[in-house]
Amino acid sequence: MRSVLPVLSVVAMILGLWYAACLPMNIKGVLTEAERAGATVTPEGGKARRDMSEFALLVANGFAIPATWAQERPRLPAPHQVAIELWDTTVMKKITSKRSLVYHGWVTLSATLLGFVIGTGLGILLAIGIVHSRVMDMSVMPWAIVSQTIPIIALAPMIIVVLYSIGVQGIVPKAVISAYLSFFPVVVGMVKGLRSPDAMQLDLLRTYNASNGQGFWKLRLPASMPYLFASLKIGVAASLVGAIVGELPTGAVSGLGARLLAGSYYGQTVQIWSALFAAAILAAVLVGVLGLIETRVLKRMGMT
């Protein structure tokens, strides 16, 4: 609660900077439009203005300032324009409409979730294998760590096209990309978690004559939960990025990535920004939901 006021003022500061940034970013476009509409602009003619600094133009044409926040295709849309576009395309449109962000968001979200579940499941399985087998640990673990330092997302376009050429399309290729992006963080985090019980605790179980399986279910798995949730949060954010990037190379028509791409082709900046914010909200919701589950689970387990 102590940090509500500071957070709010930082957010307000960002919004203020954003509005201020709209002035120099948009002024040239606004003046061109105004001149075309018949207003007197100083100096006249686009050629004379091209080499002038944005700030000199702002001083000379004070009347144009409100217009920099209300252009139809600004270089930088003002926050309220993005908010209105978001509201219009989520609440005001039917969710089956091709222009509804809820529809596009769902297309991306479904691929994200499918990939996330697959990637997490496989990641946990591999981590269990690594913890219980020395060979797997020594052979696979270094590669899993190295793979975190390389931009595996570069594989995304190829995966889409290869899967397309063998007849798989739709949600699955994007889910595959999401899966492998969430896979490695989960493996590394889960191995750390399953190893977190110390020698004393493992010895205690041995004095109870507990089997390997019992040791896993009663000690290692519960002890790994905090680590699991930490890597799940990283993994779900990576999954979302994977699904969005997966929509880029095929020229997909639906999904948040497709909205970004279409917006950049047609110069619809407001559409790009609203798709971006929709993606951000989606990521925040996903991470937030996982955080809620985390506090619930850890509380039930008595770990917080």
């Binding site: 949060k233 954010a237 979302l240 990025v241 969005i244 990037v245 948040l256 970004l260 791409l261 917006g263 950049s264 900046t269 790009i272 920004w273 798709a275 971006l276 993606a279 951000a280 990521a283 925040a284 991470v287």
Partner: peptide, 10 residues
């Protein structure tokens, strides 16, 4: 934590 790659087109 946000998908900042999305700012690329802008």
């Amino acid at each position: 934590a946000l998908p900042i790659v999305g700012t690329a087109p802008i």
